[in-house]
């Protein structure tokens, strides 16, 4: 599997986490700009989903395909759920929710890579 998208998405996600962390430090709640960034991240995860599924026919035999797709779906679910949960909180804890999501996405991408290599 081509790593470019995964690397770009990891960098983008860490950037979102970093921006959200700045919000937390400066005591700001998750505003439209931060949620917009999460929206961009969502588009990226959608791209990863489409790409991942499109590569499934090429997968080696020992790739757990069902688990792989479940991880892809989980990945896509993270940004919208984080945006919804963050916007419902008027304090900086809302931005902290985005930090969690921004760190979770790279972890899921790492798991996807492991699964693709035939790991469990």
């Amino acid at each position: 599997m081509d790593d470019t998208l995964r690397v770009v998405l990891t960098a983008l996600s860490l950037l979102v986490a970093l921006v959200a962390l700045v919000y937390v430090v400066r005591d700001r709640s998750a505003d439209r700009f931060l949620v917009g960034l999460v929206g961009v991240l969502f588009v990226g995860t959608l791209a990863q989903l489409v790409y991942g599924v499109s590569r499934l026919p090429d997968a080696e035999h020992d790739v757990h395909k069902v688990v792989f797709v479940l991880y892809l779906l989980g990945l896509v679910a993270v940004p919208p759920l984080a945006a919804w949960w963050a916007r419902g909180e008027p304090s900086r804890a809302g931005a902290a929710v985005v930090v969690v999501a921004g760190l979770l996405v790279p972890f899921l991408l790492l798991r996807l890579d492991t699964l693709w290599s035939g790991g469990a």
């Binding site: 949960w85 419902g88 909180e89 304090s91 804890a93 902290a96 929710v97 969690v100 979770l104």
Partner: peptide
């Protein structure tokens, strides 16, 4: 479920989904 409780719930939710998925599999 407000303030930092929101972050705590978010992290718990991640573990709930991950643990349920892992154990089902």
């Amino acid at each position: 479920r407000s303030g930092w409780g929101r972050v705590l719930i978010a992290v718990y939710a991640v573990f709930a989904v991950a643990a349920t998925g892992r154990s089902s599999y």
